[in-house]
Design a binder for these strands. Sequence first.
DNA 1: CTGTTATGCGTAGACCATACGCAGAACTAG
DNA 2: CTAGTTCTGCGTATGGTCTACGCATAACAG
Lengths: 253, 253
Amino acid sequence: MAETKDDSGPALPPAIESAWGLRGRPPRGPRPGLSVPAIVDAAVRVADADGLPAVSMSRVAKELGAATMALYRHVGSKDELLTLMVDAGYGPSPGPASPDDDWRARLTRWAWAEHDVLRQRPWLLHVPITGPPITPQQLDWMEDGLRCLDGTTLPEGEKMSILLLITGYVRNEATLTNQIAEGSRAAGVEPGEMMPAYRRMVGRLIDPVRFPALLRVLNAGVLDQDDDPDDEFTFGLDRILDGIEALIARRAA
Amino acid sequence: MAETKDDSGPALPPAIESAWGLRGRPPRGPRPGLSVPAIVDAAVRVADADGLPAVSMSRVAKELGAATMALYRHVGSKDELLTLMVDAGYGPSPGPASPDDDWRARLTRWAWAEHDVLRQRPWLLHVPITGPPITPQQLDWMEDGLRCLDGTTLPEGEKMSILLLITGYVRNEATLTNQIAEGSRAAGVEPGEMMPAYRRMVGRLIDPVRFPALLRVLNAGVLDQDDDPDDEFTFGLDRILDGIEALIARRAA
DNA sequence: CTGTTATGCGTAGACCATACGCAGAACTAG
DNA sequence: CTAGTTCTGCGTATGGTCTACGCATAACAG
């Protein structure tokens, strides 16, 4: 049995506890003008508007009309704020899947939900992850993902591994797609001209003797026009789901 | 036909050009005491010893007995230095696979080679990637990867997609494994105690009604002891390769 | 009214990347 | 040999970052 109550173990940072609603306001002292949710919201607003590098403690404080150091009464460090920003940025989990769908349709929906979030908030990809998820909404997402595999005969450990596999894939694909977008913006190139420019550059650099296979790819026109990123996403996801399907078939046999 | 010579297009940063050996020293002026490879080696040494955050321009300069600003004669920015550090950090590509192996054995070897590099130099995972690979050794790795799929009937575009799929998986798996290691070191916990501590924390936080599936995972003891990370790596890789196998079978039919 | 406590925030320190410009070294042309 | 040119190394300075510390003040308990 898992014990749901256990006061031992390493203490949770105060700001994380408040995210779980575990912290009541102490009776004495001035009424706080700031709150953890208000700070996190402001930080998310800054990141949405100007990207993650713009999120500095002073910028967030300015957004709230407060002084920089006022924030440190509520969050222990910038890293803690980033953790909470991720939780807020992902937003509510996609919710339980239709009971009529099979595991494959459910996982596809789950993966696309994360895909959509990452497309809308690319800065989530730039937050350095410091550990396994411990914030409420992050665990909601995990719970929903696990339920996608309800009804299969997979052992619990493999369900978890599969979830990590998929979420890793989604993040990776979003990272690559986003790099092209950010790179073209930084270079002042039309988004559609980014991959062709890359292709030209590689073609100029490589020696055909040393890089025959790469040259074949270039000549096949693979990088000439941007593929629809959604097609690329679907391709990889279907490969992974095919692999999972093979596993489920084997485990059921 | 791809044109291997094309002087148009966006110019390559000077330091990248020198990595391709395209820059001769101008005849006039004092003999440089520093060189791009020397700087990159020093930076890699710092990262190996003290991690990526320790790599500051002043620290690298100190390592070389030079002044901070001297570095900027050779690299245009810190980002440029990071790009070259990645190229050097990956080291030479694993080389051509045995012609007797099938594509699956070849790709497995290729994936493990990257896995090993990332295990040895975890800081590579923390370098923010700013665009598609343009450095010599990075392209060597890509070339070797593409050759793993020689002999299959896959279109070139799908070969590339598969490579991105696998390298993304390897990076993701390494990131997760590394987070546990870094997290335990930061928290001063025994590495083997990290996941159990995480399990206790989650068990303390979650409501059994809201998180039934997650609770089931916890009760199954999934997080109680650290699995061998290599087993976890193999599991995910085999799922992906199974998916690719299904694709190859379909394309050959 | 007094004591306690928590809040907001000002100051200051220790970093960071890097723009700019100068002193001098090494070569070429005469 | 000399003068001119060009490139290297680096000192200075600017503006940014996070955050440790401590003080004044506001709000409540008794």
